[in-house]
Simulated assay, not measured.
Amino acid sequence: MARITIFPLPGAVLYPGLQLPLHIFEPRYRAMVSDALARDRRIGMIQPQRPVEGAPLFSVGCLGRIGDVEALEDGRFNIVLTGESRFRLLRELDVTTPFRQIEAELLPERDNEVLAPIERASFEREAKRFADAQGYAVDWDQVGRLDDQSLINGVSQIAPFDAAAKQALLEAETLPARCELLVQLMQFFGRHSDDDDEGVTLQ
């Protein structure tokens, strides 16, 4: 078990091995970064179930280590978190700090997972359709050079899906399962991208 300082940010998901740039401006989160820098440089990214103060948290997040850090004169920070390990929330702790802390179980990662060739081909085909429909410019030659984990986790982290969809991707237990869900989400959101202004959610 681990005691983790958390940054509950809706829509922000981090994966092991990937990076997440963050601009820290609220006083409590400036205190959080200062505290982390004085200790082990680690912060847990986890989504709240609702975008309101003190909302319950989803059950799975990712522990990140602060790498690059820029301390601005007015107390704000620009930092880059590198994902280290997913974690499962066990309980939230009663603390006096302005930032929230939890007790969590670190989840083992399957570092050598790969996709079957047909899974990779299916994903790339759907990703091209989705990117074209959304008007995204993508360097597909560079995409083709990425290993399976970097590709699937990278797209899962930056995909323009709602919080529930992003959370489902993070909680997928295997890379093939995450890939399959990602294809389904691209198909679902792609079909509904022209719906009303409220957008489409899976909640």
Rank of each mutant, 00 (worst) to 15 (best):
N112F: 13
F189M: 05
V69F: 00
Y136I: 02
T174E: 06
L175P: 02
D139A: 12
N153Q: 15
E70G: 01
R3G: 00
R120K: 04
P16Q: 01
L185K: 00
L93E: 13
Q47K: 07
I24F: 04
G67A: 03
L181G: 07
F7H: 06
P10R: 09
A71V: 11
A38D: 13
L106W: 04
R28D: 08
K166I: 00
D139P: 07
M1R: 15
I46M: 03
M45Y: 10
R41C: 02
V183W: 02
H23Y: 14
E119N: 06
E126D: 00
E173R: 13
D196N: 09
L106N: 01
N78V: 02
A31Q: 10
M45W: 05
V200S: 09
E124K: 11
P21E: 13
N112E: 13
G17N: 08
R39M: 12
D195S: 14
E70C: 08
D196C: 12
A116D: 13
G17Y: 00
A104C: 11
P108Q: 07
K166F: 02
P176E: 09
I6Y: 01
R28I: 07
L115S: 04
G83Y: 05
M1F: 12
L169E: 04
L151I: 14
T97S: 15
A163I: 13
R65T: 08
P51K: 14
R50I: 04
P176L: 09
F7W: 04
D68S: 12
A165T: 11
Y136W: 12
F87E: 12
Q167K: 08
D132V: 09
A104T: 12
V52L: 11
R100S: 05
P51Y: 13
A159K: 09
Y29V: 00
V33Y: 00
A137Y: 11
V114A: 09
F161S: 04
H192G: 06
P56T: 15
D141Q: 06
G11E: 04
G11H: 08
I102M: 11
F130R: 02
R41Y: 10
L106R: 03
R76S: 08
Q187C: 03
S59A: 15
K128N: 03
R41H: 13
L175H: 10
V95H: 12
G154Y: 07
R191W: 03
A168E: 15
A168M: 15
Q19E: 14
L151F: 14
E105F: 06
A71L: 12
L115C: 04
I66E: 08
P56C: 09
E105A: 15
F77S: 02
F188T: 10
V60D: 04
R76L: 08
S193G: 02
V13P: 00
E126P: 03
H192W: 10
D195W: 13
L202D: 02
Q101A: 13
F25S: 10
D68Y: 11
L57R: 07
A137F: 12
T174W: 06
G44A: 12
R50C: 07
F188N: 06
T96C: 08
P27T: 00
L175G: 06
A71E: 12
L182D: 01
V52K: 14
I118R: 11
V13F: 10
I43S: 01
Q157G: 03
L9M: 10
D139S: 14
G135M: 06
I158R: 15
A172T: 01
L170K: 04
